[in-house]
C-alpha cells in the first residue's frame, strides 16, 4: 500500500512536527426568541477560548463532563461547525479562511469517528456503499479499483471482505464502529477526531477498538484528537491530555504528568471521582458539591469557582489564564504555584 508508506515514514522523524494549532477558539450558539425567533436574547457559550496544538503522530485526549464543550471543539476544528471566532491552522493552512472547494479537499486529510455506531451509519446502505462514499465524492476511485480499496480498508480494520455487501443491522456495535473507522480512513487522512468512539461499547469490545485505533495510528502515522469522558481509556491512548470545564481548557499536560500530578482542583476532583476496580482501595475522594452551572450564564471569573473548595475572592472576579506552571504543564488556576528552582509546581 503506497499511500501508507509516506506517513509511516513521517512518524519515525524525531523532531516533533506541529500539524494542528488551535488558538482562542470560541463558539457561541445564539438563543433566540420572539416571532420567527428573530431576536437574540442570549447565547450558550459552548466553547469559550480554547487553544492547543498537536504534533504529528500524537494523541491529545480531550476530557470533560457533559456540556464542557469537548465535542463542539472537535467539530469546530474540522469546521463542521463555524466558529464564532478564533483560528485553526492545519498543516500550515488557515482552515477557517478556506473557501468551499479547498475545504472539501482538506477534509480528506481530516476525518471524524463518531460515538454512536448505530446512528452514524445509513441503515439503507451496504457497507460497500458507506465506505466507498467518500472515495466517490472526492472522485478518487472507480469501478474495480474502488471495490479493491474498500476490501483493503475492511481488512485494515479487522473485518472481512465479504462483509461489504451487508447492511449495518447485521453487525454488532463493535463491528459497526469498525465500519465507521474504515470510512474515516478511506481518503488516507492524517488527522482524525475520535468523538467518544468507545463510549457506547461493552468493555470487552472497547478494548478491541482501542487496540485497533492504536495499531492504525502506528501503521499509518495518524494524529488523533481523542474526545472521551472515560479517564481510564484516555490515559491509555493519549500522549497528552487536556481537561475541559464549561467551555475552557483548565489543565493540559503530558499524560503521565497530568495523572501523577494534577494541579487544577477540577482535574483532581475528576480523577478522584472514578470508581476503581479494586475493592478496599482506600483513596481520598474529593466529592464536588453541586452540579455544572449552565453555559448560558457561566459564573464570573473562574468558571469553576462555584464548586471549588479553595475558591477565594480573586477567583470570583478574575478569569485565570491558562499558563505554563512547569515545562509542558499548563493550568488555569490562580492558586497553582508555578515551578521554582527549588520545587515543582503546587496546587491549592
Amino acid at each position: 500500500m503506497s499511500a501508507a508508506a509516506a506517513p509511516a515514514a513521517a512518524a519515525t522523524v524525531k523532531e516533533p512536527r506541529e500539524i494542528l494549532r488551535v488558538e482562542n477558539l470560541v463558539k457561541h450558539f445564539p438563543i433566540t426568541a420572539g416571532m420567527f425567533l428573530s431576536r437574540e436574547v442570549g447565547s450558550v457559550r459552548a466553547v469559550d477560548g480554547v487553544s492547543f496544538e498537536l504534533n504529528e503522530g500524537e494523541t491529545l485526549g480531550l476530557v470533560g463532563e457533559s456540556g464542557s464543550g469537548k465535542s463542539t471543539t472537535g467539530r469546530l476544528v474540522l469546521r463542521l461547525l463555524e466558529p464564532t471566532s478564533g483560528s485553526v491552522q492545519f498543516d500550515g493552512q488557515d482552515v477557517l479562511a478556506l473557501e468551499e472547494a479547498k475545504l472539501r479537499a482538506l477534509r480528506g486529510k481530516m476525518q471524524i469517528i463518531f460515538q454512536d455506531p448505530y446512528g452514524a451509519l445509513n441503515p439503507r446502505k451496504t457497507v460497500l456503499e458507506t465506505v466507498a462514499e467518500p472515495l466517490l465524492i472526492h472522485g478518487r476511485r472507480w469501478g474495480p479499483e474502488l471495490h479493491a480499496r474498500v476490501r483493503e480498508l475492511l481488512e485494515l480494520v479487522g473485518l472481512a471482505s465479504y462483509h461489504a455487501d451487508r447492511y449495518p443491522h447485521e453487525f454488532s456495535g463493535g463491528q459497526r464502529q469498525r465500519i465507521g473507522i474504515a470510512r474515516a480512513l478511506a481518503l488516507n487522512p492524517r488527522f482524525i477526531v475520535c468523538d467518544e468512539p468507545v463510549s457506547a461499547l461493552d468493555v470487552s469490545i472497547q478494548a478491541q477498538i482501542v487496540n485497533l485505533l492504536q495499531d492504525l495510528q502506528e501503521e499509518l502515522g495518524l494524529t488523533y484528537l481523542f474526545i472521551a469522558h472515560d479517564l481510564g481509556v484516555v490515559k491509555h491512548i493519549s500522549t497528552r491530555v487536556a481537561v475541559m470545564y464549561l467551555g475552557r481548557i483548565v489543565e493540559i499536560a503530558d499524560k503521565a504528568e497530568l495523572y501523577a500530578r494534577p494541579l487544577h482542583p477540577y482535574t483532581r476532583a475528576l480523577l478522584s471521582a472514578i470508581p476503581v476496580p479494586r475493592p478496599g482501595a482506600g483513596r481520598e475522594r474529593v466529592i464536588l458539591q453541586g452540579e455544572v452551572p449552565s453555559p448560558i450564564n457561566p459564573p464570573s471569573g473562574c468558571h469553576f469557582h462555584t464548586r471549588c473548595p479553595f475558591a477565594v475572592a480573586e477567583c470570583r472576579a478574575v478569569d485565570p489564564p491558562l499558563r505554563e506552571v512547569a515545562p509542558g504543564h499548563k493550568a488555569a488556576c490562580h492558586l497553582v504555584q508555578p515551578q521554582t528552582a527549588q520545587e515543582g509546581p503546587r496546587g491549592p
Binding site: V203, S204, Q206, A207, V210, N211, Q214, L231, G232, V233, K235, H236, Y259, L271, I274, V276, P277
Partner: peptide, 13 residues
C-alpha cells in the same frame, strides 16, 4: 480489558 488509571502498558488485553 479495562484500562485502569494505575495501569501502564502498550496494549489492552
Amino acid at each position: 480489558s479495562i484500562p485502569h488509571l494505575d495501569h501502564e502498558g502498550a496494549r489492552l488485553r
